[in-house]
Write a protein that binds this DNA or RNA. Structure first.
Lengths: 238, 238
DNA sequence: CCGACGTTGCGAACACCGTACGCATATGGG
DNA sequence: CCCATATGCGTACGGTGTTCGCAACGTCGG
């Protein structure tokens, strides 16, 4: 009948809820989930921990979210709102495409856990933010004059997704080590050198000093992006 | 989480001895793990089930494999052996690159679980098969005459990885439904149409009858691959 | 004002999971 | 033959996602 451990629930203490700590809602749950994912990574997100963060029991979340997978889908769509796509009437289409691609990459690197989710679910999600992202892209590439705009979009964003998820996964590994990227790289070098031994072309690439990892990644992404845009430009009529 | 000092230990550095044919060996474990992953997907692979399949207890596997993550790394390298890269002296470099890209994609679609692993770990793995895959690519693109061969490789395979992992994730979702791809698509259509409502450019793309899904995916991959190769061709001297 | 009802929170429980530990057994070298 | 080492594995610990049934609550018809 009465609880045996913990404070005895009192009628007087039970009355009101904090107004600034709002009731459990789907939006609040998704927001907090994204916060946990960003701060501690995908393997740290459990329903129990998320419930505790919201001053709620673990199973209470299931009143607002059907399953953890659904929650992840909602989290992805939440983050998709951050991706910026220039308007369709942008004067310079290459600059516009570069902006959209860069915005996608920046979002992926800000929330590296999406690479895990994308690997498991692909782009089959139908959330409103992802849809409007796709719509803006379609509008842009159609206005540019591509005869098959969705083909061009798929090509461009396959590259962007491939590069971004690889980078995000790498950054996740680095983050898990608790070190800076440069420190982690130098600690990984012995194993890498051994693995590369006997492979002449790879060894050559590993011979030169790498330099600032962030600048290298930025340059690598920009290079590939230019390659893809060059290839796409050839498909433009005129 | 915990930062450590000293070189990062690599799975590949640790020795393994190879007696005649014991029931339990690292090779046998990895082979069986790949079989389970192919047949039942990544979420169906547990150490207990894998042990049972090998007529062994779950914890016996830990005599040959340090952790499940390490086992996944070994599994990835195992299937990496299937990827074919033409020799460096191939006469037609575009055909050679197309062959390598297609072989990667085919391997990814044969083992769709790798997209999940790639999303979590990226390409930081240093297994011998992955290394020799990279080495062959480097040899090919160097022989072709690319001034920055690893840049070209990174660009091409970012596209290939992005497209392949998206496809693999999609096929995983389809497989989980137990239906054919066409049946699953048609069952998904109502939700897709609703999500697309109000987005004119997307709705237009959804209006036409899709046709055979396999042929569509093949054509999409080939289109993007040609785009990337066109962009790369512009970087070739001469 | 009050009672019925749909909604929400939640504690307990279930069936798993990865894996650390310690003990039993098998094997091979001196 | 004996001992050292390698290998198998039963048990257990601390987690996981999720189901279920019950209690408390807000709302609204009467």
């Amino acid at each position: 009948m009465t609880a045996r451990t913990g404070p005895i629930p009192s009628v007087w203490a039970r009355g009101q809820r904090e107004p600034d700590q709002p009731a459990l809602s789907r939006a609040a749950i998704v927001r907090e989930a994204v916060a946990v994912l960003d701060a501690e990574g995908i393997e740290a997100l459990s329903m129990r921990k998320l419930g505790a963060r919201l001053n709620a029991g673990a199973t209470s979340l299931y009143r607002h979210v059907a399953t953890k997978d659904e929650l992840m889908e909602l989290a992805v769509d939440e983050v998709a709102a951050e991706i910026h796509v220039p308007p369709a009437d942008s004067p310079d289409w290459r600059a516009a495409a570069t902006e959209a691609a860069g915005s996608f990459r920046a979002t992926a690197l800000r929330h590296p856990w999406i690479s895990s989710v994308l690997g498991q679910a692909g782009l089959a999600y139908l959330g409103p933010n992802l849809m409007s992202f796709s719509e803006r892209l379609a509008a842009l590439f159609t206005a540019v004059g591509f005869p098959e705009p969705h083909r061009a979009i798929d090509t461009l964003f396959s590259y962007v997704v491939g590069m971004s998820t690889t980078e995000a996964a790498w950054l996740t590994t680095v983050a898990r080590s608790g070190e800076t990227e440069a420190a982690f790289v130098s600690r990984l070098m012995p194993a890498a050198r051994e693995a590369v031994a006997g492979h002449d072309h790879l060894a050559a690439a590993y011979a030169t000093d790498p330099g600032d990892p962030v600048a290298i990644r930025d340059a690598k992404f920009a290079y590939g992006l230019d390659v893809v845009l060059d290839g796409l430009a050839m498909r433009l009529p005129g």
